[in-house]
């Protein structure tokens, strides 16, 4: 998705109307992407808003010749990772104090047994592989777009996808 904004000059940032349009178009996929990472609805809402504030703040660094969606998802991913790292640190601290922070699961009641098993398999594979599979399957992104989101070469995305799927298959065969 490359914004087509006729009202602004080439080197000027995207106009507000165009941003609003993209925001509406990517609403579901972006929220889903964040939710699958942080697994908490309230945090998802916060990160969704923060993502768009960051988009506006860093519009100058966006290359208009590149697709917008991977850039947007990259910002959301970085914010989600920051949140998860903060949470991990907090949990560690609280564990040291003897208070165990509750763990979150993704809609555990709604998934069927098989689906939950598959989800657990996906959660168990190393995060660098899991990320690629999630972006590929849930967000239906191309390998090129995934490489922009993760800021790694396309070849790395290919190999991570390959290895991640092998991990997933092995785990799936064990649990079924």
């Amino acid at each position: 998705m490359t914004p087509v904004c006729k009202c602004s000059m080439k080197e000027k940032p995207i106009c507000l109307d165009e941003l609003e349009k993209i925001m509406t178009e990517t609403k579901t996929s972006l929220a889903g992407f964040i939710y699958r990472m942080v697994k908490q609805p309230e945090i998802t809402q916060d990160i969704f808003q923060e993502t768009w504030l960051n988009v506006v703040r860093h519009l100058d660094s966006y290359d208009r010749n590149q697709p917008f969606k991977p850039w947007l998802f990259r910002i959301a991913r970085n914010l989600s990772i920051n949140h998860l790292n903060r949470q991990k640190r907090r949990e560690k601290k609280e564990q040291n104090l003897g208070d165990i922070y509750p763990t979150h699961s993704l809609n555990p009641g709604e998934l069927q047994a098989d689906e939950e098993r598959l989800m657990r398999c996906l959660d168990q594979i190393p995060s660098r592989f899991r990320e690629v599979i999630r972006l590929r399957f849930f967000e239906e992104m191309s390998f090129e777009d995934i490489s922009t989101v993760l800021n790694v070469p396309v070849g790395t995305v290919y190999s991570r996808s390959n290895r991640g799927l092998k991990h997933l298959r092995k785990r799936w065969e064990k649990v079924r």
Binding site: L19, E20, M23, K27, T28, A31, G32, I34, Y35, R36, P41, T44, Q45, F48, Q49, W52, L53, V55, V56, L106, N107, E110, L111, Q112, D114, E115, L118, M119, L122, F137, F138
Partner: peptide
Amino acid sequence: GVKSKTGYSLPDYAFESAKTEM
């Protein structure tokens, strides 16, 4: 099944608030 059930639909109020802030 996993894909459809693990999605998240952002509530309207949250979306509108994000839009206003943006």
